[in-house]
Computed example of a mutant assay.
Amino acid sequence: MIFEAIDINKHRDTVVGFRKDSFYVSFGDTMGFGEEEEYLSWLDEKIRDFPEGFVLAKEDGKYIGQLELTIREYEGNNIGYVNLYFLTPEMRGKGKGKVLHQYAKQFFKNNEVREYHLRVSPSNNHAIKFYRSSGMDEVGPEVDGKVIRMKGYI
């Protein structure tokens, strides 16, 4: 697996499609996705701040996944934040998530953060199981129970 920096002009359809699919898997629909242009504008801004944190995973010449990683403040400390872990449906359950997770941990280590967080839908049992097996713990529910915050350490 190789990681390729996201270029919005080149990868627009891929990143929008992957992000929408992540909403569908997490929440059963894409209602919470919002407007494509808003997402692309946010993505463009974050890529400028964290270029190594926004990558597509590629295998055998095909895009199979996406990572969106940032550094943000949480309760007075800088933490790593996983905005998106994504694998295409045919790549799920084949150990590819471990490669994405290793990339994320290395990104956070390179940016000198020791703790990282993410949010996951409480109905996304497969993802929760993966995060737990990767050493992450539940912090608790957020956004009126629509998501669970999880954290891990480098």
Rank of each mutant, 00 (worst) to 15 (best):
I2F: 08
N9V: 03
N9T: 12
K10I: 11
K10S: 12
H11I: 03
R12Y: 11
R12I: 02
V15C: 07
R19S: 15
R19L: 15
K20A: 14
K20L: 13
K20E: 15
F23P: 13
G28R: 07
D29W: 07
D29C: 04
T30K: 05
T30W: 11
T30P: 05
G32M: 06
F33L: 01
G34C: 07
E36W: 05
E37L: 02
E37Q: 07
Y39S: 02
L40I: 03
S41R: 06
S41L: 00
D44S: 09
D44W: 02
K46W: 07
I47H: 01
R48Q: 13
G53Q: 04
G53N: 01
G53I: 00
F54Y: 11
V55A: 03
D60M: 05
G61A: 01
K62V: 09
L67R: 11
E75M: 03
N77D: 15
N78L: 13
N78I: 04
I79R: 01
I79W: 03
Y81P: 01
N83Y: 10
P89W: 04
M91I: 01
R92I: 00
G93L: 00
G95W: 00
H101F: 07
Q102F: 00
Q102R: 06
Q106A: 06
F107I: 02
F108G: 10
K109F: 15
N111S: 06
V113P: 12
V113R: 09
H117A: 08
H117V: 05
L118A: 10
L118Q: 10
V120I: 08
S121Y: 06
S121M: 09
P122W: 06
S123M: 10
N124I: 09
N124R: 11
N125Q: 14
N125R: 12
A127I: 12
Y131W: 04
E138S: 06
P141C: 07
P141Q: 09
P141D: 13
Y153N: 14
I154R: 12
